[in-house]
Design a protein around this nucleic acid. Structure first.
Lengths: 202, 202
DNA sequence: CGCAAAGTTGCACACGATGTAAAGTTGCGC
DNA sequence: GCGCAACTTTACATCGTGTGCAACTTTGCG
């Protein structure tokens, strides 16, 4: 990895850390982008080359992309053929490529608990991601109604979001994806649905 | 209803209509709050006495409150006792008190299709509403895990949101709530769940 | 070493959003 | 009707976010 790339990563992390430190001390609205930049040692203009907004820096957001192989497998009916199971599997892939390391992710989650606006921002991010994924879901559910695709996208959001909540409330240990089966179970419980259908492929 | 109240309503609607007209013509980012105010004939400062942001004016947002009787009934196990059914029923109550008349609501939905940011804002609004409702859900699900309550809140969001999408895609005719059963059915289909459990109370 | 690409920086600027205090309306008791 | 009290709008000042642009600096590479 070249120097340029390392510097970029370092700056990005410096900005995130500065944001965490200052927001923790002064609250989200008590901190200006300018202050974060002073702390991180870059110009304000540079800040906006890295993040779209102050909130994004705290959450460490970056454009998220899904493994093309996983996407293709899902779109063509895989990996098991059972929609509910495959949705969970897709959520697992999403959660497998975290934008932040464990420590910073936990810090961001902690701050998000104290600053509701950050939670809202997080939902916004998921929402944009959902729109992107709708193409994928549409391919998988070709022949079904457009509305089913929308519901599938929203359900996927629930899986990801609820799993992250559980991970954080469990102390930020282990893998986020490990909470997915519990979320799925709760969802079924809620709807009075029976246990998950068996895998027809074996 | 006194003059003061009527004027307030008229100003609010004038602002919404001006926002719709201008955003339709110039796009969301091509319109300034100042322009909307000029069109509606009020000062910019007044605008922010009515709406928190430009986007809110287009969506005609206002603090939403649920009928206390409905809330109480839900919290204490009603109306049917079947959670899935009662969630749908709760969603029906939410959708029964629209913030806008049919025409303006359709206009807002139309603009939201063209301006993704408005969709995101709408989700944000639902999200804040979800947080408020979590107290209610917590009472109903006392004894269950906090996580189940969270999933229930998110599911409720899906019901409301998907129903609105269907209403709009059906041409904005009839009642939004009429699409709820279809959403519920899709959700069950998605999870491979069977038909809705019967009402134990009858 | 020297060029090209990438990235940072300062500057200017538009707009969103809020606090404050003054001016203007409305509601209401009399 | 009168006049006071409550409420709203309004103008003004101000701060912070976010972006376009052009100049400068640094890195990658032959």
């Amino acid at each position: 990895m070249g120097l340029r790339e390392r510097q970029k990563r370092a700056r990005r992390e410096a900005l995130i850390d500065a944001a965490h430190r200052l927001v923790d001390r002064d609250g989200l609205d008590g901190v200006t982008v300018e202050a974060i930049c002073a702390d991180a040692g870059v110009s304000t203009r540079t800040f906006f080359n890295y993040f779209e907004s102050k909130d994004d820096a705290v959450l460490g957001m970056a454009p998220l992309r899904l493994d093309p192989e996983v996407a293709e497998a899902f779109a063509t009916g895989g990996p098991t053929g059972v929609l509910a199971t495959d949705l969970e599997s897709l959520a697992r892939s999403i959660l497998a490529s975290p934008l932040l390391d464990r420590g910073r992710m936990a810090a961001a989650a902690e701050l998000a608990r104290r600053e509701p606006r950050l939670l809202v921002r997080h939902v916004t991010w998921l929402e944009q991601y959902r729109v992107e994924l709708e193409g994928l879901l549409g391919r998988r559910l070709v022949g079904d109604s457009r509305h089913l695709v929308e519901v599938a996208g929203m359900t996927l959001m629930i899986l990801v979001r609820a799993a992250m909540q559980r991970w954080e409330s469990a102390g930020g240990q282990g893998e986020v994806a490990d909470h997915l089966t519990a979320v799925n179970a709760d969802l079924r419980l809620l709807l009075g649905a029976g246990p998950e259908p068996a895998d027809p492929a074996g």
